[in-house]
Nucleic acid binder design. Structure first.
Lengths: 339, 339
DNA sequence: TTGAAAGCGCTAACAT
DNA sequence: ATGTTAGCGCTTTCAA
């Protein structure tokens, strides 16, 4: 097939003005819902608009108004595989839905490793009115300096708290881990291990910190720590190492559900029953947690809400409103059968 | 915090021209890589550009050139929950990555139920040079008529094959189902059931058709069919119904992995062992298939490749090149432990 | 090879 | 309440 499209005869505002017998300015007012236009005129202009099937040209509008009605969603290059993470998908979803009700569109940018400067140029090229930076897992706030030129909202806190980088939305990772550990202790478990996440990612750090705080606070040992990279495979491997080190362990807290799933299969391999021999608690409450075998006890984080909150915050920022610098969304323990 | 940004002093092409001591036209030529500019001039202009940190304004450029360098990715409104589907996330990922190397940006649009016409207006408002429509699961090609105004590429075939709607990329659902059923038969299974997908979605139809063709072709009964909606919960429910109808069944093919996961837990509930008592085969090879308990035998579909192919096809279409009307990507059986 | 000039389609003062 | 008039920042003939 041939890919040509008939030269689009897009009707212009001027044509509408002619058809309605008014000036272009008036048509513009009607299109933009200005209150100071007489009802009759509004009506005739609207008639002309539908008659001609007129749709305003965005480029012209942005050029003249210096607003784009667009918001960028920036995904760190290192995390193209970030799509593998249901949490990330939920953030995108939340942001997209929150924006669906507004005049804004979401422009998704995956940072190119080929041209690391591309994103910066895009942001500075007047393409968008603001940007959402999903650095949740990486803690990378290298865009922070752009905050001076453009409203920016980050998902997840920066790795270095000193690097106070403007506006952020985060979930309460530490509290979630605290609740998980406490739950295990309350259930009478005494030899509790954890499969922690990477320590160069804020959630990895915060969840481990919450865990050790509670465990040591209860007078238990916190020597059973193995690290994974948030994938199921790494969770299984870590579980195997844990079992080797401490066959007597009776509980494990994994820093995310995928690693918990891996732990579940490692435990099945080893012939341990869950939760009778070993209790397992995860983090995220991703879409597979509820149907795992056995259903996973985990910490729910409001992932799509996080995306939505980021979007709302950015919109208010663009509007020049007062906005909280940091928002922390609550997490909540969901008790199922695994622990 | 206050949300104000210092009035952005974006350098303009004119300023670059002044700084380099040439005309705006020349700067424009350099920026756009025109071959007919003397090397010395190119150099001085480029120096001015970096000195001023100049970034061309996209709106102005689009307005003048009538090109936007942007591509829309349209998600059917009914499927905001489509993000729950790892397959969809992969498509987005594939498209975004394929576009990362080009001059195009992805604009994600979630169709608003509040204003169903919004998407149409956006597409017609000169916002993008073309669009990707992810209708894979719904078979909804209601945008087909827009093909006359704008290059469009659809993911998934339309529900009604008559409704030949321009350019599409699809995976070979029927072949995948065929391979799955044949595998079960080759393994000596004789009482084979299927948990089919919704019959108002092309993949649901195609996968069921492939299944029944092979099963009846082998002289087996195809009476064990229950329907689900592609969710794990519906898969579990369907499995329970099947077990009730035919306790003697020895295999089940689920039209996607999520339903297969549901079937797995239903079988565990019923005390059936997999694959000894019942073999289970899924479809998709989503990220949880490999770590399911037991690891799921399934049909792999090249999901991110599908997104990438859609994007590439659209780019070629926009460039006015010759493009295949329909592309079918191959699927492949992945044998693991469940069947 | 370079420059001058005319828009692209719209918004936003400023008049009326 | 409506029209007039300038641009917004860039590309693109057309001349030189």
């Amino acid at each position: 097939m041939r890919g040509s499209i008939p030269a689009g005869h897009a009707p212009t505002l001027e044509m509408v003005a002619a058809q309605a017998g008014v000036s272009r300015a008036t048509v513009s007012r009607v299109v933009n819902g200005s209150p100071k236009v007489s009802p009759e005129v509004v009506e005739s202009v609207q008639a002309a608009i539908t008659a001609l099937n007129y749709v305003p040209n965005r480029a012209a509008r942005s050029l003249a108004s210096r607003r784009t009605q667009a918001i960028a969603l920036i995904v760190p290059e290192s995390a193209a595989r970030v799509f593998d993470d249901p949490f990330f998908a939920s953030i995108v979803q939340g942001a997209a839905l929150a924006l669906a009700g507004t005049e804004y569109t979401l422009n998704m940018l995956i940072e190119s490793e080929l041209d690391p400067d591309k994103t910066r140029r895009y942001l500075l090229g007047g393409n968008v009115d603001g940007a959402l930076v999903v650095s949740h897992h990486t803690g990378d706030h290298s865009f922070a300096h752009l905050s001076r030129s453009l409203p920016l909202v980050f998902g997840g806190r920066p790795l270095d708290p000193e690097e106070s980088s403007g506006y952020t939305v985060d979930v309460d990772n530490e509290h979630g881990a605290t609740a998980a550990a406490q739950h295990l202790i309350d259930a009478g478990r005494t030899r509790i291990a954890t499969i922690a996440g990477p320590q160069d990612m804020p959630p990895g750090v915060d969840r481990l910190h919450g865990f050790t705080t509670v465990v040591t606070g209860a007078g238990l040992a916190d020597d059973l720590i193995e690290f994974g990279d948030f994938t199921a495979a790494s969770g299984a491997a870590a579980m195997h190492r844990l079992l080797e080190r401490a066959p007597e362990l009776d509980a494990v807290f994994a820093a995310n559900d995928q690693m918990a799933m891996g732990a579940l299969s490692a435990l099945a391999d080893a012939g341990r029953s869950v939760p009778d021999d070993v209790a397992v608690v995860g983090f995220d409450d991703d879409r597979y947690a509820a149907t795992a075998v056995p259903p996973l006890t985990t910490v729910r984080q409001p992932s799509s809400e996080m995306g939505a909150e980021m979007a709302r915050k950015l919109v208010r920022l663009i509007a020049g409103e007062d906005v909280e610098s940091a928002t922390i969304l609550p997490t909540e323990l969901v008790v199922r059968q695994s622990g």
